[in-house]
């Protein structure tokens, strides 16, 4: 009862301590492009991940009677065209359903992109942290990074694809073998930028007081890196991860487009695009769908990266 009569000079309730990631999320949400990118990436991921269960058509099934079906929207301006509601995106020259191919191809393309990006980030972070933290190794590791940076990446990747394809295929089976090859190829040729950025940040962090404090109580290097250094270089790593994902998806599609990616009965977006180029005069939509899928996914990832960079920068966040 006395509570009600109490004057309102009670201390303000202590503001709930924020997790800093909530602040980052708040800032990220205000970036329209990044939010649109995130929504699109979620959509395309779900489309490829769950789609094949809902759209239960075998992407490899040949259906010669229903070959060269145009997508359903062609019927709007061309009533004569061969369209069918059972094949909303049409079929290719062997009667394979294009929608289920795009779903299956997206699974592979996204899986390659994510795995290759994670591999590149792991190598890059490892090299960057080691080189920034241990002065003795710095010179050698950075010269090595410079050397790898001056290798012509695309030709070397093509060479690797061509030469290591058969043995890996024999060892792991046609699909897994090529998957390992492409992921490893992209991973070990795209870690250098991350390594450079991480090294710079680690070197700056090493001069800070909290590192000195941690060292003065006898923290061993391993715990120093995992507990004090790594959490503080997380933001540049996340930004370069988004860039890495975009590059990995483009590189995989480029390899498939040059005919040096996955085998032909194994669709990826780049592969579908490559197979459709010969018939693009009569069936432009077959080029359009996989190309749009690649471009929009990469565009979405790039926008996410843009928003993430802004959100992770405390100067922009106003802290």
């Amino acid at each position: 009862m006395t509570d009600l009569s109490m004057p309102s000079d009670t201390p303000e309730p202590v503001e709930k301590t924020h997790n800093q990631w909530w602040d980052v999320w708040d800032q990220f949400r205000s970036h329209k492009g990044a939010m649109a990118g995130l929504i699109f990436l979620a959509f395309i991921t779900l489309f490829c991940a769950i789609g094949p269960w809902l759209w239960d058509v075998d992407p490899g099934k040949l259906d010669i009677r229903n070959k060269d079906v145009r997508p359903i929207y062609v019927a709007i301006w061309d009533g004569e065209a061969k369209t069918s509601w059972a094949r909303p995106m049409g079929t290719d020259h062997l009667g394979r359903d294009i929608m289920s191919n795009i779903m299956q191809g997206g699974r592979i393309s996204l899986a390659v992109g994510w795995t290759a990006m994670i591999l590149a980030i792991l190598i890059g972070t490892f090299v960057g942290v080691i080189s920034g933290y241990f002065k003795r190794l710095d010179w050698a590791l950075m010269r090595f990074t410079d050397l790898v940076l001056s290798l012509p990446i695309l030709p070397l990747l093509l060479v690797m694809m061509l030469l290591f394809r058969d043995p890996l295929r024999a060892a792991f089976g046609p699909e897994t073998g090529i998957f390992i090859l492409i992921v490893a190829g992209i991973g070990i040729t795209s870690w250098m930028q991350t390594a450079r950025i991480v090294r710079g940040d680690v070197m700056a962090l090493k001069e800070r007081e909290f590192v000195l404090a941690a060292r003065s109580i006898g923290t061993p290097p391993r715990r120093m890196i995992t507990r004090h250094i790594l959490p503080n270089v997380l933001s540049p790593i996340m930004v370069s991860a988004t860039l890495g994902l975009a590059t990995a998806i483009i590189t995989e599609s480029a390899l498939s487009f040059l005919g040096l990616g996955f085998p032909s009965d194994f669709p990826t977006w780049g592969k579908i695009l490559f197979d459709s180029v010969d018939r693009m005069t009569a069936f432009p939509e077959r080029v359009l769908w996989p190309g749009l899928a690649i471009s929009l996914t990469v565009l979405a990832v790039n926008y996410i990266g843009d928003g993430l960079r802004d959100a992770l920068d405390p100067r922009i966040r106003g802290l």
Binding site: I250, S253, M280, L288, G291, V298, L299, N302, D306
Partner: peptide, 23 residues
């Protein structure tokens, strides 16, 4: 420039062929 970063040349090339050569 975002589009320039994101659209790979093998798609933009094919796209302009479809538009300007075919159509």
């Amino acid at each position: 420039s975002m589009i320039g970063f994101s659209v790979p040349p093998f798609f933009s090339g094919v796209l302009v062929i479809v538009i300007f050569s075919v159509n």
